[in-house]
């Protein structure tokens, strides 16, 4: 299988009044055709910025891509001029966002927004695009699609709006879909429906998906490969089954311990002590050191950034003696 997207050593920082914030620090990830790749992490861990910067969607200034490459279909997305990127966005790579309530334009008809990618990228005329728009709404399970096209976002429920977003993202049949916490803002029952819809469409259309979330249960359900991010860095990356069976990095293990469903009833829920570090003043060495469980904290690297090493085939982890369970080389 060939990689649809190959990101290497991506570095993004924001130049603010309080100093340089390293939002993404040397992140590498690969997305194979038809694969779902998860990016997991807390708020502010850099998972969204990683994806936004690929498409040139971070506000600049203050945001700046400092280095790295992102190969997609033979081009480096990070070096493409804005005009060329526009041709990729919404055509070959699409995005859906967290909050469907605010992500659709309240002033424009659903149909107008939905078919905009077709008009822009495929040069379709209005009537043909509109017709395909109706089909796209049917595809994501919206009843009375033809009348719905003429309505406005405020006439749709949250789940329905997210379906519209998905239809809009997939209407040009892109090769890659980036889903930025697509279920976070939805009710639990709707979450499952939207997840099923994304999985189903992915299988039918054979697209690759990058799935950003902080919900490990969702990751477990949809992802083939999981990347765990912490403080702008990748701390662990492995096939989903391997990661859930043998989590190696302390942060991954801590995340898994804090899933309520895995806890015995009556026991207080585990939470990771402390807060993620300030990205403009990162601790030297291992960035998880300040929050590491007290007895092993002393072992964490202080003098250098722990490198990512392959601890077992296909399973990479940040090699910090304090964080990696059972030694680095095994």
């Amino acid at each position: 299988m060939s990689a649809v997207l190959d990101v290497k050593d991506l570095q993004v920082s924001f130049h603010t009044r309080n100093g340089v914030v390293r939002a993404v620090d040397k992140v590498s990830l690969k997305v194979e055709a038809g694969q779902t790749v998860g990016i997991v992490g807390e708020s502010g861990s850099g998972k969204s910025v990683t994806c936004y910067s690929l498409l040139g969607l971070i506000p600049s200034p203050p945001g700046k891509i400092e280095g790295g490459s992102a190969m997609f279909g033979g081009m480096d997305l990070l070096k493409l001029p804005e005009k060329e990127l526009q041709k990729v966005r919404g055509s070959r790579i699409s995005m859906i966002f967290q909050d469907p309530m605010t992500s659709l334009n309240p002033f424009l008809k659903i149909g107008t927004q939905l078919v905009e990618p077709l008009r822009l990228h495929k040069g379709m005329d209005k009537a043909a695009a509109w017709k395909q728009g109706i089909e796209a709404l049917k595809e994501v399970g919206i009843p009375e699609a033809a009348t719905r096209m003429d309505q406005y976002p405020h006439e749709f429920s949250g789940g329905m709006r997210q379906r519209v977003m998905i239809a809009m993202a997939l209407i040009t049949r892109p090769e890659l879909l980036i889903a930025d916490e697509p279920t976070t803002a939805l009710d639990v029952t709707i979450q499952q429906q939207v997840l099923d819809l994304i999985k189903d469409l992915q299988k039918r259309l054979g697209i690759a998906v990058v799935f950003i979330t902080h919900d490990l249960a969702v990751v477990h359900e949809v992802c083939d490969v999981v990347n765990v991010m912490y403080a702008g860095r990748l701390v662990e990356s492995a096939p989903a089954a391997e990661l859930f069976a043998h989590p190696r990095h302390a942060y991954t293990r801590a995340l898994m311990r804090s899933i309520p469903a895995l806890q015995k009833k009556g026991e207080p829920l585990y939470t990771i002590p402390g807060l993620p570090p300030d990205l403009s003043h990162l601790p030297a060495g291992c960035s998880f050191r300040p929050r590491q469980t007290p007895d092993r904290q002393l072992l964490c690297l202080r003098d250098q950034r722990p490198p990512l090493v392959e601890v077992s085939p296909g399973h990479w982890a940040q090699a910090c003696p304090g964080c990696v369970e059972g030694g680095i080389l095994s």
């Binding site: 919404g90 699409s94 966002f97 002033f107 424009l108 990618p117 977003m165």
Partner: peptide
């Protein structure tokens, strides 16, 4: 600054069209 402007940009709408087509009304 609204999210739907980001959506429009993610769709590949060119800069001036985002302003005139998506932002101006509001």
């Amino acid at each position: 600054n609204q999210d739907y402007i980001r959506t429009a940009r993610a769709k590949g709408v060119p800069g001036w069209k985002v302003v005139m087509g998506h932002a101006l009304r509001g």
